[in-house]
């Protein structure tokens, strides 16, 4: 998985947000508020090779059950793909 748009990830007013920058700022307005898990997924999206690996990484770092970790990962990554912020790098489009 690869992030294909430009965003600044930062904390502001106690919340973690993604703010579009560069050419992306001309396509999207506003900012995206992220949960702690979403921030973790964003930071590690390009470091892992599959959804299963991402879920395992979440489980290694957060005290949540597997079902919740998978649900969070699928929802957030799905939103990233749907909005064109990220794209699959594997030929079979599984990651």
């Amino acid at each position: 998985m690869k992030i294909i748009k430009e965003f600044i990830l930062r904390e502001i007013a106690g919340e973690c947000v993604l703010v579009p920058t560069g050419a992306t700022s001309q396509e999207f307005n506003g900012m995206i508020t992220m949960s702690e898990t979403a921030k973790f997924i964003w930071e590690n999206l390009e470091q892992v090779d599959s959804l299963e690996e991402m879920v395992q990484l979440i489980l290694d770092n957060y005290e949540i059950d597997e079902e919740t970790a998978k649900k969070d990962a699928v929802a957030f990554i799905g939103a990233l793909l749907q909005n064109g912020f990220a794209e699959c790098t594997k030929e079979d489009q599984t990651w």
Binding site: E6, I8, R10, V19, T21, G22, S25
Partner: peptide
């Protein structure tokens, strides 16, 4: 918006 340095400073 295209200038990330500017945006970070603004925030």
């Amino acid at each position: 918006g295209w200038n990330s340095e500017f945006q970070i400073k603004a925030m």
